[in-house]
Design a binder for these strands. Sequence first.
RNA 1: GGGCGAUUAGCUCAGUUGGUUAGAGCGCUUCGUUUACACCGAAGAUGUCGGGGGUUCGAAUCCUCCAUCGCCCACCA
Length: 713
Amino acid sequence: MDVLGRFTMDEKFLKPYNPADTEQRIYTAWEESGYFNPDNLPDAESREPFTIVMPPPNANGNLHAGHALFVALQDLMTRYKRMRGYRALWIPGADHAGFETQVVYEKQLEKEGRSRFGMDPKELYAEILAFTLANKSNMESQVKALGASCDWSREKFTLDPDVVERVQQTFIKMFADGLVYRGKRTVNWCPKHQTSLSDIETESVEENTPFYTMKYGPFEIGTVRPETKFGDKYVVMHPEDERYAKYAHGDTFELEWINGPITATVIKDSAVEMEFGTGVMTITPWHSQVDFEIAKRHGLDMEQIIDWRGKLLPIAGEFEGMKITEARGKILEKLANKGLLVSTDEKYQNVVKRCYKCSTMIEPQVKDQWFVKMAPLAKKAIEAVNAGNVRFIPDHEEKIFRHWMENTLDWNISRQIIWGIPIPAWFKDGDAIASLESPGEGWVQDADTFDTWFSSGQWPLVTTGYPDGKDFATHYPTDVMETGRDIIFFWVARMICFGLYLSGKAPFHTVYLHGLVNDANNKKMSKSKGNVINPLELTEKFGTDALRIGLIVGNTPGTDLALREDKIKGYKNFANKVWNITRFVLENTSGADQMAELTPSDQELRTELDALITDITSDMEAYRIYLAAEKIYHYAWHRLADELLEESKPIFTGNDSAAIASRKALLRSLLRDVLAVLHPFMPFVTEEIWQSLPETEGLLMIAPWPGQTAKAP
RNA sequence: GGGCGAUUAGCUCAGUUGGUUAGAGCGCUUCGUUUACACCGAAGAUGUCGGGGGUUCGAAUCCUCCAUCGCCCACCA
């Protein structure tokens, strides 16, 4: 107040809004208030809990645009609920991201002219740990820069000792319950990364692969992989194929094959498609899933042809030690010379599996691994969805979820990498058991680590302290799982399975799935394309609020988003617009009596905003967040600023003191509510302004959500 | 081979699950520098809502077929 009893407006409003002057200071104020931790909220005990678990970002690099979107969404959900009077908890975390991080680190080693192979495992582990911890704190500071109101005191890292122990205990329990088993089965082997991968860690790509037909004794067989055929000694056909009726199952015959004469056996199996090719094939059980299944059904021999590095073994004779890619041509040449190559279909299209990280062709190999038996877990997950205990937004994702769940095969959780949680298992004489401690003499510990999703699948449980931690009773099940549509199988499906298995309850009632954030041309961002946008560069340029609301407005769940700078720039202008609305209101409402009676027409304007807030509130409750954001944006700019402020000018320059008093009180109350509704979307600028209003006390962050619906539940 | 989605203004997208002249942002045209804001304001142009057929008093919205694009899953060598 100045000497005349008038409010003196902060001079900062005379200049455009500058996010850089504000954001760090405001975030510190929020953090120091302690309200990120819901236990510190006023009347915390009487509040209903609301819980979101943050998808822990991989601690192996900078945040990307997708992280900015999830921070914007989850933070606005948390802030909204906090203002609505909930005991709002958003639990942050960081993921060691096993294989992913190891791949990132290996690339770094490569640049330095080093390789993980030949390194002492303990040294390698220590190096990756240091790398991960450095990136973890980098990642945390970036999440803070985006304004995340998560409770850092509850932050979890997937390699925290209690997490590791919980994950290992789960494995042991699943072993006891018969839900994990040690199986010698076909696995997806990446010859570059020297580890097996789960089915969803491979990419199936349709490619042009020449299809060769070869003479195999009295038969003609087809293959796209001549380099695997050395050991083929079974010829398989459909039992009802009349063309081959004269051959009986088990018949043997001699033939001249790649490296000389062999004895082959006839096998009848209905897995063979009669219509495909000649209806006859030979099998390579060690290097093909289908062939493996056939061999298993009939108890046939299996022999490894290709080693773990992708080179031919001694069975290949003169081709031993050759990489399969270079061997193929030479083998074909030899086959042709021996008159065994009948024909080549150069145009054949075939589905090839590749490593999702390095695109190396996956080599199916038979290996002893730990598998999770998915069927019983999937059954419970589907039941939970059917019962309406888990709801998907957008709802069509439920169909995708269900379809995958109904068809998913057992899950290989063994990884031959050191960067991860060790599998607590021991082997002796072909026996395998799950145990933290050695069962006794002669037992050898499993050297493998868990698929990283085996631990992150238990994330809602471990972050809330399952089974007897202090938050488990209050905050589990959590409320919303907000994450990317692209990890519905990797993560969401597994979390539901683990949650139901361990706690008997689904870990959340709502799954909100956002789409991918693409570049301005709607192309997927990738390092190789060089179109990756660092969100922190955008916040520096346009302010965090602008980036956040720019990612929210018009972005319907499940739909990919083209991230365009001009859109973000538009919301930078909006932040400045709100700033200048405040300037106008403060300049023209000095000495406002907040209790002044509103004129009938002003009362109507007040009622108009009340109705809008009711509408926006129901949008928020129904997760129509993109609409809620647009509505308050539109009201602030095109109703309040363009129309109400304009029509206020003649009132303030007139001499109707009742009208002036009414209008002053009205504008102040409209401004406060606009700031409050806008806060979850644009937390920094709204809080900054709130702190400059003479009539407000405390942080906007914990102010009540306006409107009649604001009562605590 | 199976599944999911999209197709609305030049561009990026909404359209709250059938209801008056279909909306926003950016871009574009014209005007405006009046002390909230030029990071601005006013006015304006632009759409057979992919195509055919159907249901309905009424369809961008529901049904059906077709076309094009995108994504996901997949053990025919």
